[in-house]
């Protein structure tokens, strides 16, 4: 795969730059902090809810999110901003401009990547494709096979980011489209089993890409109480290994705090989702240290 080679080479090149600038000394005994910021199911909510709204008065708004993201980036430049899908549909902005404004604003906020939700097909796969020129960030989905669609080559299964020498692998997952989205909208997009794909992705990111941190950007939903076996973030966390964080969407789940789930190797996985409509911004900080003793005591999770 040519793309994978390219990613590996890019990673090597940037490490070399890091070495040249810092030297070997700074690699040892230095705390490193990676901040992951995330949204999901923003659904074209660009303006804050008005003061008269019955449920979410005065909450949300892209311009406020922008200032919060900016202040966090100033505090820690080693930050990634991710979206777990359903960026489209929910306010007249989408009906009038078809997603142009959503993508332009996400680009201005310097989103690093987004996965594709079912509502991102609402103007058809052609409608999504038409807005791509406005998006200055990557679309990531590992279980939608777009080979026979106009989106072929415009969506990556995963991306590896490097921040402060830490390699962060992010892969995307989408929900089953049959019965949820009109076939005329998603056309020849093929849905693959998200759990199987995730098992494969986490292996590639851990063993081949040698990532320090593995994140799943998921739009499969948090959990379905009336269909407990349906693929969901909680089921995904239990059935896989090497994933550190699952950032979810689709079910518009407001969690008081991220959920800690034991994976197939009995290790902790964090599952988070921040409701919908840009009301919240999720923030997960990962601290790395060179001190082996500290790590031997296990990873502390403060949520």
């Amino acid at each position: 795969m040519k793309r994978r080679e390219f990613i590996q080479q890019t990673a090597v090149a940037s490490t070399l730059i890091g070495l040249g600038g810092l030297g070997f000394q700074s690699f040892s005994r230095n705390d490193k902090k990676i901040t992951i910021l995330h949204t999901n199911d923003v659904h074209s909510h660009i303006d804050p809810f008005g003061p008269e709204d019955g449920l979410n008065a005065n909450k949300g708004g892209v311009a406020r999110r922008a200032s919060l993201v900016e202040s966090i980036r100033n505090e820690n430049p080693n930050t990634l901003l991710l979206d777990a899908g359903d960026m489209f549909q929910g306010t007249p902005y989408f009906n009038y401009f078809g997603g142009e404004l959503e993508f332009k604003l996400m680009s201005m906020l310097k989103y690093d990547a987004a996965t594709i939700g079912n509502h991102d097909f609402d103007n058809g796969i052609d409608g999504l494709f038409a807005q791509l020129p406005h998006a200055n960030f990557d679309f990531i989905s590992a279980n939608y096979d777009f080979s026979n669609t106009i989106m072929d080559n415009h969506v990556k299964p995963y991306r590896v980011f490097e921040r402060d020498g830490i390699k962060i692998g992010v892969f995307g997952l989408g929900i089953k489209l049959d019965g949820l989205v009109d076939k005329r909208m998603y056309k020849e997009t093929v849905y693959l089993d998200p759990i199987e794909v995730a098992q494969d992705m986490s292996r590639i990111l851990k063993e081949e890409e040698r990532c320090d941190l593995i994140i799943c950007l998921s739009h499969i939903g948090y959990h379905y109480k009336n269909a407990a076996d349906k693929p969901s973030d909680l089921n995904l966390a239990k059935a896989t290994k090497n994933i550190d964080l699952i950032i979810g969407g689709h079910t518009h789940t407001f969690l008081k705090k991220p959920t800690v789930v034991k994976n197939i190797e009995d290790k902790n996985v964090l599952v988070n989702q921040v409701g919908c409509y840009g009301i919240n911004l999720g923030r997960i900080d990962f601290y790395f240290d060179s001190d082996k003793n500290k790590a031997a005591n296990g990873t502390t999770i403060l949520v």
Binding site: R64, L68, I279, N280, R283, D285, F286, F288, I301
Partner: peptide
Amino acid sequence: SHLYKIEGQQLLISDSLGS
């Protein structure tokens, strides 16, 4: 590099934030 600590929080986008 060893992951030794994870902190998670949810930040409300409220009107106390400047635009």
